[in-house]
């Protein structure tokens, strides 16, 4: 089979993805999801598998800057892309304001949904710096949390929005 999207070695494909600003390579089977590639090939286990059929959002990453289900993306489809995972959000020990908001507002319990929630919220605030409560709830409606009842997650995102606005207001 003639193959683009990476050279094929007996049905396997060489791919290169920039993950959290670090170029990474792997040789994967076509059926390997981006989720499994991140977790198994690169040991980036912050991206979680909650359903593997696209409903729960636990596997959300930013793919070329926009939220995507890593379980519904083949690793080969992401060849050449930029991916941000939860591990890439903090700068050293300095949490991203959305992460801070989740901590401050107790927006997590078991933490399993948290990476997907946080990345979805990061994208929301990039596109809508002052969302209403309903806008926050709508933006997060594709991410299931089984623990919190969402109230503190919504508060966390609102908290982060305020913090980010403050930051951009002070030069």
């Amino acid at each position: 089979m003639s193959v683009t999207g990476g050279a094929a070695v007996a049905g396997r494909h060489a791919i290169a993805i920039t993950v959290n600003d670090v170029p990474r390579r792997a040789t994967v089977a076509a059926r390997t999801s981006l989720l499994d590639c991140l977790r198994e090939e690169w040991a980036l286990t912050g991206t979680h598998a909650g359903c593997e059929h696209g409903v729960c959002g636990a596997c959300t990453v930013l793919l070329d800057g926009r939220p995507a289900r890593a379980c519904l993306t083949l690793a080969v489809q992401a060849d050449g892309a930029r991916v941000t995972t939860i591990e890439g959000l903090a700068e050293g020990d300095r949490l991203h304001p959305v992460q801070e908001g989740f901590w401050e507002c107790h927006g997590l319990q078991c933490g399993f949904c948290t990476p997907g929630m946080v990345l979805t919220a990061v994208h929301l605030l990039e596109t809508n710096p002052a969302p209403t409560e309903i806008e926050i709830r709508e933006a997060l409606a594709g991410n299931l949390c089984m623990c919190t009842g969402y109230q503190n997650i919504v508060a966390a995102v609102a908290w982060a929005a305020a913090r980010l606005r403050e930051r951009s207001a002070t030069p």
Binding site: T45, I86, Q99, F102, W103, G111, P115
Partner: peptide, 19 residues
């Protein structure tokens, strides 16, 4: 109090079974 255990969960550094 804020939870002491949160930072590892927030950063994707927790160790769940499948990790």
């Amino acid at each position: 109090l804020r939870r002491v255990e949160d930072p590892r969960f927030l950063g994707g550094r927790a160790s769940y079974l499948d990790d």
